[in-house]
Design a protein around this nucleic acid. Structure first.
Lengths: 149, 149
DNA sequence: GTATATTAAGACAAAATACTCTTAAATCAT
DNA sequence: ATGATTTAAGAGTATTTTGTCTTAATATAC
């Protein structure tokens, strides 16, 4: 597992929001229905994004959530950090906190380059790109109705 | 978290075993002391490696565990698979089981190349290389006595 | 203002992961 | 044989993650 389920749910919901050109409020119920995941659990996840000011929420009829800024300005990484509460970065594949230049773990060098590329990818990919890609290709965000892996 | 703690413990212990040129049995107590982790927990982890025939164990006085084959023939990946019980591979960063050529998730293409590189790295790095690198550089396998990260 | 729709928040339950403890089995030394 | 040493196995506990349920707060519509 690369990301927690919370993160994945948050990312998927955010992509759906980015897909909505109108940028009006969309209810969490609609999102959870479309993604086929628990409404209450998704609510909790999206609350984090709202508190981080990645989303904007509105209560009551016609309420819901929407992106607080243009999809071009929201990165994959921002969302993960907001939800998991930590920098999405594996410093050392062996989990050694002191691993670094001075005392590298045996995998340090090999890992570093890969890690940089991962960081670069998630730091530069925006919701705009993700939703765009999804709009063009065959949509695939639902967890259900799987054809198998 | 890239790997579970069980995996990390198993990898660290295996690297210590690979470092031992004599290839005699080393007690799990010695390993857990050196790695500064729970003896009983490490025992469970190493039992998996023994069942997978990556380690060989021997009970009683002068017993312990040792590598069942040359360190050159044990890969990082083998150990992870033995302990986590699944292929260490993130098919889709958004966790979509059906993600693939036919219905790619929005990150599919970007992820694929990175994933291949990760797979390549963990599939080709052997315990011999890991222990060697550790012997030459400044050793760093203990979780305790951290200088902070 | 009353009812309805919707997010916010918190308590609670379930499942997965991490860790501890006890007992059994095997081996060795005497 | 007996006792000591060591892994094997399984029960039990703790913590984290995931998921559910209930109530509160806020906004709309009538």
């Amino acid at each position: 597992m690369l990301l927690s389920k919370s993160c994945i749910y948050g990312l998927r919901a955010s992509i759906l929001l980015a897909k909505d050109e109108s940028n009006g409020f969309i209810t969490i119920r609609d999102l959870s229905d479309e993604l086929n995941i628990s409404f209450h659990f998704l609510t909790k996840v999206l609350q984090k994004l709202t508190r981080s000011e990645i989303l904007e929420s509105f209560k009551g009829p016609n309420g819901g959530v929407k992106l607080a800024k243009p999809a071009e300005q929201v990165t994959f990484k921002e969302i993960v950090i907001s939800i998991d509460g930590r920098f999405y970065k594996v410093d050392c594949p062996l989990g050694l906190p002191a691993c670094g230049e001075l005392a590298p773990c045996p995998l340090h060098d090999q890992w570093e380059e890969l890690n940089n590329r991962i960081q670069n990818m998630i730091g530069s990919v925006t919701l705009a790109e993700l939703s765009d890609r999804q709009k063009r290709g065959k949509p695939n965000l639902q967890f259900s109705a799987q054809t198998g892996s």
